[in-house]
Design a protein around this nucleic acid. Structure first.
Length: 821
RNA sequence: GCGAGGAUGGCGGAAUGGCAGACGCGCUGGACUUAGGAUCCAGUGGGUAACCCCCGUGAGAGUUCAAAUCUCUCUCCUCGCACCA
């Protein structure tokens, strides 16, 4: 007897060994030039934080690894890479806190997290590792920026942007959460700065329409749709009464209510606000505008706040009936949406209704409906915002409001007083950051030639090493203080010139990293079109829902742009998206069950668990904890069950191999094939928690005298290998003496002839209540089943003396006998 | 306010019209043992002396032979959006 066969499952003895061998033998190396069918399984790459990985991070990585290995066992060449999103605020803020240069701390953090990631035992192909702060990587991020610049999609504009006073930088619209900074939670202020912007709005319609093509969670698709925020309506021109040269453009989705427009409102930031104001009103208006612009977003968007506004003294002409209506300024109108001006219809818009009530402006009802809520005197108690029939609207009276939207807009269009118009909530992407740790924007300013892009051959524009990398708060990045960086020569005239000193946002590098992995070492281009067209789009993308808008929208935008310039042959980056649920735990700090995070003090470090139970047990438990897409609470003690299971499964396999049966007994064959079916279906459905419970049931139900052939034991090992790769590899190679890795084998298939058992247990109900069970042959006919059901003592007891109304037998499922007194 | 998702034992969860609580944790009892925080066996929703029986999937109604599952009303929780005209 081989002494190997008598040993126990001791994970520490096998796991490190196999990780070493896999690395040495390049088992996880993906040959990009394979002729085989490909599969691209991608994890959202982490930013290398100083605190390392906790068990919450593991969850998504284990999930995607099981899926990647499962695909590999189906014969796919699987690309499953990993890298570092290492530029940007998180890395930089961490570095500032610890007083370590971000370049150093990023390198250290990467070392640590790479070690932790390797402990997961995932089949990452580390030869393709990428790092967004590596000059060889970010030269291509800069290259993409230049391509956008050449297509007029990158432009410079001075505008009030969101400014985080703590991070001392401008932020994109997407980075502001409820008026606070996405990174640090500080209230965001407005600051007028010269900014580089990306014209993502040019892609609004396509970004919206193509959502339909994606196999993504509905929730994420809805969030993106709402963010893009398409709305269709009309733009209408109101001419100023005392100056017909000035036309105020308003946007409305309710042109059908135009006859009910009783005043016009401009946003305080509207460019013509002061121009149209009558001289005697100027002091009041000025004061109001100042107050409004100084308010933070949080104050401005507080719904409970009472409406404020100021009259300009000016009047405009309603184009449909030539009525004079007053022009007001109020901060409930947003400057950046539509045209920054509205027509106010208090009868049919609650906000206008409140404003009109407060300032005594007229309310004219133009859409009639019985559903409107009214005061006893018949006047409106609140605005009626639904559909109805037009009244008080001259030639349009009696028309249905939906129809009137079209008719009235068409009438305006014919008169050159308006047109159909679609607007989006999506705004252009503020792309400048006044921070050190990011990709320098590759632009040079020359007194003579103006704004000049850096020549592509001069990329990358290297981020200089500096002593002082702290944000300045002056509206300029720390790079502005470095003469050697700033002073350069103009690429066109060769004269003295200055470099742009702002850097790109954190999201720049991650907007295209998925294109770099298959050709991560390519030196002449960001990617090879032939290679990316073969390997992309990503077949399955796994990551947290927190990136639903920011990263996923930006990546879709970059992909569509690269498609448009012919660099790639596809226009969506991620076909399928899977959002794993968060791992939560009770936090002593907040007294609540919360997402695991260092700041909440509720993180669980996987390292000691790996040491005690081994990686494979931790992997199993990460999956077993709950359905992958749902948040789950971590509980350390639950892990024991997974450890016990692996030990039992190990002993079972060793015992069967020792016994060396030639054939599997009939019952065991059935159980095995049922297991193959269950596990296969559950992996396909991403129900990995129940896939594991299927294994547990299998091991629990095996009788002592069960016999499995070597071939069937091998099937069992393959089945378990995606979940517990070290465990499976040890048994496969050391116990069953295979020369090649188990992951070069094939996923077993179940055979229907083994799925069905000879006899089945049928529950028998009387009036819907369970009264007994019946063991029947699988082909027994319903008549004899119903007959023997009635013969059951436990059944006849409830039937005797009563009249049988109905007998139901659902084949293979249930018997129900319905009786009446 | 609008939109989406959810509520099942002491706990994580299973079951998508057909035996509610699979599987795991925890707990109880037993075996083995010098010992047990190891291992194995049995039990474990509530009521009940009971393995008879009754009740039970947030609350209430309905459809059905049969409802955790479908329909309606309500409550609570989580997430997203929120003066977007």
């Amino acid at each position: 007897m081989d002494e190997k066969l008598t040993r126990k499952y001791i994970p520490v003895m096998i796991e490190k060994k196999w990780r070493r061998i896999w690395e040495e033998k390049k088992v996880n190396y993906t040959d990009i030039n394979t002729k085989n069918k490909k599969y691209y399984c991608l994890d959202m790459f982490p930013y290398p934080s100083g605190s390392g990985l906790h068990v919450g991070h593991w969850r998504g990585y284990v999930l995607s690894d099981v899926w990647a290995r499962y695909k590999r066992l189906h014969g796919y060449h699987v690309l499953h890479p990993m890298g570092w999103d290492s530029f940007g605020l998180p890395a930089e803020n961490d570095a500032i806190k610890k007083g370590i240069h971000p370049k150093i701390s990023t390198r250290n953090n990467i070392e640590n997290i790479r070690r932790q990631l390797k402990e997961i035992g995932a089949m990452y192909d580390w030869s393709k590792e990428i790092n967004t702060s590596d000059p060889e990587y970010y030269r291509w991020t800069q290259w993409i920026f230049l391509q956008m610049y050449h297509k007029n999609l990158a432009y410079r504009a001075e505008m009030p942007i969101n400014w985080c006073p703590a991070c001392k930088t401008g932020l994109a619209n997407e980075e502001v959460i409820n008026g606070t900074c996405e990174r640090c939670g500080s209230p965001v202020e407005k600051k007028k700065l010269m900014q580089w912007m990306l014209k993502i709005t040019s892609y609004a319609e396509r970004l919206l329409a193509d959502i339909e093509k994606l196999d993504w969670p509905e929730k994420v698709k809805t969030m993106q749709k709402n963010w893009i925020g398409k709305s269709e309506g009309a733009s209408i021109l109101f001419t100023l009464d005392n100056n017909p040269d000035i036309k105020l453009e308003v946007f409305t989705t309710r042109p059908d209510t135009l006859f009910g427009a009783t005043y016009v409102v401009l946003a305080p930031e509207h460019p013509r606000a002061l121009e149209i104001t009558l001289p005697e009103q100027i002091p009041d208006v000025k004061r109001y505008i100042e107050e409004a612009t100084n308010k933070s977003d949080i104050e401005r968007t507080n719904l409970l706040r009472e409406k404020t506004g100021v009259f300009t003294g000016a009047f405009a002409i309603n184009p449909v009936n030539n009525k004079k209506v007053p022009v007001w300024i109020a901060d409930y109108v947003l400057a950046h949406y539509g045209s920054g001006a509205i027509m106010s219809v208090p009868a049919h818009d609650q906000r206008d209704f409140e404003f009109a009530k407060k300032f005594g402006l007229p309310i004219i009802e133009v859409i009639y409906s019985e559903n409107a809520s009214r005061n006893p005197d018949g006047s409106l108690a609140s605005a009626y915002e639904g559909a109805g029939i037009l009244i008080n609207s001259q030639q349009f009276n009696g028309i249905d409001s939906e129809q009137a939207k079209i008719s009235i807009t068409q009438w305006l269009k014919n008169m050159n007083k308006g047109d159909f118009k679609t607007t989006y909530k999506l705004r252009d992407w503020v792309f400048s950051r006044q921070r050190y740790w990011g990709e320098p924007i590759p632009i040079i300013y020359c007194k003579k030639c103006g704004t000049v892009p850096v020549n592509e051959k001069d990329l990358p524009v290297i981020l200089p090493d500096v002593e002082s990398y702290k944000p300045t708060g002056t509206g300029k990045s720390p790079l502005a203080a470095i003469k050697e960086f700033v002073n350069t020569s103009c690429p066109i005239c060769g004269g003295p010139a200055e470099r742009e000193t702002d850097t790109m946002p954190q999201w720049a590098g991650s907007s295209w990293y998925f294109l770099r992995y298959p050709n991560s070492n390519l030196e002449t281009a960001p990617f090879d079109k032939k290679i990316v067209d073969k390997w992309l789009p990503v077949d399955c993308y796994v990551g947290g829902v927190e990136h639903a808008i920011l990263h996923l929208l930006y990546a879709r935008f970059f992909t569509k742009f690269l498609y448009d310039i012919g660099a790639i042959g596809f226009d969506e980056p991620f076909l399928r998206l899977f959002n794993q649920g968060m791992v939560t735990k009770f936090s002593e700090k907040t007294g609540k069950i919360e997402k695991m995070s260092k700041s909440k003090g509720n993180v669980v470090n996987p390292d000691p668990l790996v040491e005690k139970y081994g990686t494979d047990t931790v992997r199993l438990y990460e999956l077993f904890i709950g359905p992958p897409e749902v948040d789950s609470e971590w509980n350390d003690s639950g892990i024991e069950g997974c450890y016990r299971f692996l030990r039992k499964a190990w002993d079972f396999i060793i015992e069967q191999v020792e016994k060396n049966y030639n054939e599997t007994d009939k019952q065991s064959k059935i159980k095995l094939h049922q297991l193959i079916k269950k596990v296969t279906e559950r992996i396909e459905g991403f129900k990995l928690n129940t896939a594991i419970s299927a294994f547990m049931e299998f091991i629990k139900d095996i009788p002592d005298d069960a016999c499995f052939s070597r071939q069937d034991i091998e099937k069992f090992i393959v089945l378990l290998s995606p979940f517990a790769p070290h465990f499976a590899e040890e048994l496969w190679c050391e116990v069953l003496n295979h020369a090649e890795t188990v992951f070069n084998d094939r996923w077993p298939e179940f055979e229907n002839k083994f799925i069905f058992e000879e006899t089945i247990t049928i529950p028998v109900q009387v009036n819907g209540k369970l009264r007994g069970t019946l063991i029947v042959g699988k082909d027994e006919d319903s008549e004899s089943i119903l007959k023997s059901a009635l013969e059951l003592e436990s059944v006849s007891r409830f039937v005797s003396g009563r009249h049988i109304v109905k007998q139901i037998y659902v084949p293979g499922k249930i018997v129900n006998i319905v009786t009446k007194q």
